[in-house]
Structures are given as C-alpha cells and as structure tokens.
Amino acid sequence: MTRPEASPTARTRSSHLVLVACALAAFIAVAALASLLLTIAVEGTGSLSWKFLTSFASRKAANAGILAPLAGSVWVCVICALVAIPMGIGTALYLEEYAKKSRLQGIIQLNISNLAGVPSIVYGLLALAAFVRFFGFRSGEKPLSFSIEWSELRVLAPGNPDSFWFVQAPFGSGVLAGGLTLALVVLPIMITASQEALRAVPKSLRQAAEALGSTHWQVAWRVTLPAALPTMMTGAILSISRALGEAAPLLVIGGFLMVLQTPTNLMSDFTVLPLQIYNWSGRPQEEFHRIAAAAIIVQLAVLLAFNALAIFVRQAFQKPLQS
C-alpha cells in the first residue's frame, strides 16, 4: 500500500546539501563584499595623498582633489543632523507618549512607513519645489536677500553675500537647501528608530515616575527620554551616515558637480562626496576611476568613523542603565 520514501540516510544526506547551499550563499555575500573592498583599495590607494584631500576638482585627474565635496558633505550633514534629529525625536515622543492610540495615529504610522519606501530621488523633487523655489515665490525675479550683522545688531537688506549670516528667499540650491533635503530623506528613519527606542523603555519605569506625581512631560523628559537616549543616538548616527551617502536628491536640487570653493555661508553652492564620486566614476578615462576610488576610500573611512562612534556611544551610555 505504501512505499517508503527515500531511505533515512539518503534524506540525511540531502539535508546536508541544504546546509551546503546556505553556507555557500553566505559565502557569496561575503565574497561580494570582499571583491568590492578589494577593487576599491587596488584602484584607489595610489591616488590618496594630502594634496588629494586639500585640492579642488580639476579637469586633469592628476591635479584633482576633494576639498570642496568634503567640506560640502560636512556642511549639509551638520544641517541635516540639526534638523532631522530634534524633529525625529519630537515626532517619536508625540507618537509614543502623547498621541491616543486612535485611527489617526494608525494613519500617521502607516504614513511614516510609506515614507520610508519612497525613493530618495522623489524627495529631491519635493525639496526642489519647497526649499529651492519656495513653491514659486518670486520666481523670475531676483530672490529677496538680507544678512544679519551681529556687531551692529541690524538686519541689512539687500544682504551682504560675504557675511556668514546671509540669507536669501527662496533659498536656491545652497547648503541650507541641501541639508534640509537630506533631513527629509532621513526623517522617517530617525522617527522609526526613536519610536523603537522609546518603546523599549519598560512601562514600570514610567509608572514609577507617574506614581510620584510627575506631569506627563516631566516623565517624558526626565525618565523616558534619558533611558531611550543611547538607542536614539545610535539611530541618529545611522540616519546621518545614510545622509552622508545620498547623492540622488541632491543631484535633483542642484547638481553642482564642479564646485571650486568651500561653502562660506548657508546659501553657498556645494557638492558632496557621493556626487563627486558619481561624476568621476561616470567618465570613461581610467585616471578618473582611480580618483573616484580614492574618494570612495575617504567616504568609507568617514562612514566607518561614524559607525565606530555609534558603537562607542552605545557602549558608553548603556552601562549605567543596565547595572
């Protein structure tokens, strides 16, 4: 009536085959990473030099450097961090500590997870309309401009572009618009990470503080937030490293691939490392591939330093909470 399936030993043998297949897949993933890093190291190390770090772009690969994109990356990422981190934490606080578990909150949550799936280049279109153009404000005319002279406590219009406190409306495609664009891109990541950090804080801690008669905000500010902060910082650092690697949305808002100065104020033109890498990689000449690889090494080094910082922060801050 019944025929036995393949003998148990044969089944055991085919079971080993699955193990081999899985281990092989893991090995391929590692091999891909290894060949990627190796390619970059082989192509790029020769071009790395102090001069490379401190020169501007050039039509000749031998003279080109990454000073402008390096400075640009720092500027936009600082702006991005200053905007995205407080906004992300604030939104997460509201959603986790204040919002009633209502339909509205469900919609907001779905919205945020949807945002995380929007391609970054599409954020570029929003940023172009909102920050670069102010939705058409004064389009076709010269932008409004003014600067603040702190020494005389005066707002000067039209502003002085040599001043650090020089602002235009609309912003145009300067570092401020760039930073805000990246903030849009990483905000959903920042919110989600902060929410998870807040959710991980045990309820009992909150209840203990409430039982002592603390107000809602006092509980959030003095109890929940400090407990969630190390995890939030890790999320923040991950968000900023994502911002450091973004090129597509910045390309949409400005696309400056050849910038021959470092930014001096929030309206300055800029480029960033990933854009510079894009520009050089896309050229047919081999020399440019080599300097692209060198720029990638710098980019990865910055990212690595950032992630080391994340690990350090996690360990430094988590100890007192656990013991």
């Binding site: 009536m1 019944t2 025929r3 036995p4 399936e5 089944r11």
Partner: peptide
C-alpha cells in the same frame, strides 16, 4: 509525508 509516498486516498 516525510517517511512514505502515499496516494491521496491512503
């Protein structure tokens, strides 16, 4: 199902 090959009725 692991150990035998069975017809549907079986």
């Amino acid at each position: 199902r692991l150990h035998y090959r069975l017809t549907r009725a079986d």
